[in-house]
Design a protein around this nucleic acid. Sequence first.
DNA 1: AATGAATGAGAGTTCATTCAT
DNA 2: CATGAATGAACTCTCATTCAT
Lengths: 231, 231, 231, 231
Amino acid sequence: MRPKNRPSGRNAPTFIENARRAQIIDAAIEVVAEFGYTGASFVEIARHARITKSIISYHFEDKNDLLDQLVRRIYDEIWAFVEPRLTEQTTAAGRIRTYIESEFAYIEGHRSQLLALGNVLLNHRDAKGRLRLKEEAQTTVVGLLSGIFEAGQKAGEFRAFSPTVMAVAVHHAINGALDRWAQDASIPLADYARELSAIFDLATRRDSVSAAPKSALQRKAPAAARGGVSP
Amino acid sequence: MRPKNRPSGRNAPTFIENARRAQIIDAAIEVVAEFGYTGASFVEIARHARITKSIISYHFEDKNDLLDQLVRRIYDEIWAFVEPRLTEQTTAAGRIRTYIESEFAYIEGHRSQLLALGNVLLNHRDAKGRLRLKEEAQTTVVGLLSGIFEAGQKAGEFRAFSPTVMAVAVHHAINGALDRWAQDASIPLADYARELSAIFDLATRRDSVSAAPKSALQRKAPAAARGGVSP
Amino acid sequence: MRPKNRPSGRNAPTFIENARRAQIIDAAIEVVAEFGYTGASFVEIARHARITKSIISYHFEDKNDLLDQLVRRIYDEIWAFVEPRLTEQTTAAGRIRTYIESEFAYIEGHRSQLLALGNVLLNHRDAKGRLRLKEEAQTTVVGLLSGIFEAGQKAGEFRAFSPTVMAVAVHHAINGALDRWAQDASIPLADYARELSAIFDLATRRDSVSAAPKSALQRKAPAAARGGVSP
Amino acid sequence: MRPKNRPSGRNAPTFIENARRAQIIDAAIEVVAEFGYTGASFVEIARHARITKSIISYHFEDKNDLLDQLVRRIYDEIWAFVEPRLTEQTTAAGRIRTYIESEFAYIEGHRSQLLALGNVLLNHRDAKGRLRLKEEAQTTVVGLLSGIFEAGQKAGEFRAFSPTVMAVAVHHAINGALDRWAQDASIPLADYARELSAIFDLATRRDSVSAAPKSALQRKAPAAARGGVSP
DNA sequence: AATGAATGAGAGTTCATTCAT
DNA sequence: CATGAATGAACTCTCATTCAT
């Protein structure tokens, strides 16, 4: 989405336009993080950005547009941070551990981003009332993680389990821990990261139970025998 | 909080009053579940309850009061369901598994409650802007779970880990799974429950790695040696 | 005005009915005195009377009726107090002094009545938007006082002046003093009374300037010569 | 107080803003004068100003703000009219007479201002329920007048009396006369002014009784002997 | 004689958005 | 590129009053 009042005959945003947009999005992040989704009015965002609220309407099609871009910005930043670390890894277990650790590492310096992202995702609805952004976000992350889990299972690194459910568990355990830290930092983020890594390492590794017959059974008839779920 | 119109000198609500309040809270649950926190206006709630909006103001002090009671109602119902099942269990591991399973069992028939609860907790702020309800909720659940984990550790059932972090992970993994199911029921809730139980069983059991010397090490120098976190 | 729901076939109010009405009017006086005209809602009055608000509607036709009766009650009380003292007096000057003193004497123990009366008179409007009660009140008091002044002038007690204007001055000087005392009792009411009596004694007495020709002139061509006002 | 929508970083109101504010205050004055304090709703004020009610909210923080500014405006106008006339006077008696006359002169063309001011002062309460504006107003005027009286007493112009009580009497006699005129103009304001001036001239002058022994007594033991009040 | 429940009109206020300049 | 001004819809909440019981 682009502001419809963009001066005619020009398609590319100017330098000033980009700067303003960035400034407004920054302010919006702060405001949503501090006052929540419902407290994020244009007046409040404008006050934080030390501009008038009309400027916001001028640079963004509407509030949807602003929030969409806010979410996109945060995602891009996170991904730019996480992705290179992920590709360095060669094993599935390494990728999961790295994913957890790098999410935590990124958030450490971006508390507002975390809070803002959560608030917007959980509340922002399109015209039909659907939580489109939240659905997209979950699809993306769960898709990524479950892909890693599947690969790890095929490679024999992991025991049999539902990759989707495990991905959901990882995703929300991370977010929950981050969220808790954001409002009560008595436990350092690094500790959360280490503990979570341990948890999901134990929960996924192939020989997690023992080397006994049981695991042999598991290896032969994985999902079905254990009542595993389909996707 | 009580509606201030309640005739003075009378403390006990009448039968009709209770019925109306229940009806209104029911409607509010549906509306919040369907339209989200911001969509839960008095007009919309009244429309769902097939009453006029001023009846809501008549029976509740204000919107805060309504939402507080909504949350309390859902909590009471959940707890009434979960608690007896929990006390039946004699081992810590059994309690954790039962907690997971009974939460899932309760929600199976109460999708709206789940959605409404989440929306209110994550958005409802008091006059000072604090997410009081959310904080209370987390304190309670995490406190309950971490208590079980600590007991299990003392009893030798569990390996060494941070009970708080584990509790946070369990709490959010459950909520995340429930939330995902609520908007995409392609995986049956029972499967989520079984998989999650397995995950946290593996993640917590004492001999999770093997029965070898390693576990002896763990038993002797647990937290510190593994870089465990304090609380 | 009478409540329209009065049980049919009976015209005279019962004992209970009168007691309730008195109770409600008392509560209304307190509430208006404390919270002002706008703060005097049925809920608040009912709370003070420790009854439900429906009882008010049951015993009074409507809010107009209640306020009318409130005003009438206070007037009757004041008049019952002032009137006998007034008739004891034989001179016009004595009557004025007595009027001032007995108003102050009555109010000394009836602060709420004073405040309630003022608030209602100055705000209560009929359907056409007229301040009927206020107009009636002023007509009555100013009529009474200006009558005394005229009599005093005819009797030669007073100098020439507009009886109406003097009555207005007396009326409002009294009310102003009472009102000030009601919210700041640092000066005793008795002092106000004594000073006000002195003021209007000096302002009205025949030989207030001197016994010289000037007063002769005044006596012969009073109002007109001094540019006096008509009524 | 300023409207919070005012663009940040800008402190000075624009020309248009001032014009609108003036227009709205004018309308508010008319409405309060005509319909009273309770009748002065935003819709009604907007109707008189031929604007929509949200413009009022746009230009004033809230209703308190509007009414505060309304009162301030009227005070400023009155004072701008009265003050220069007052300073022309050299004697205390002259100042009192001038104060009376110039108040009347100002109100002659500003009937709505008088009525609006009275209605707001007598009804407008702050959050704690106090009639702050009324108290301030009385303090100011009574302070001014009693100061003049004290000066006059020291200069030997006036007899002994309580300056405060006299100030209260003057203040309310004026207001009462103005108020009466506002709703019944059968007596010209000029007549009120002349009569009131005479009243308080007679009531305050040193030789008000005569040159006889009585006055000698008064001159020697003034306040105490006559039971004068302290402040 | 009393009252709990309901009601609808209307209150002030907030908000994203539009528009002329 | 910016913005002050305006707008109207929507919001929660209050109130006197009605009515069946």
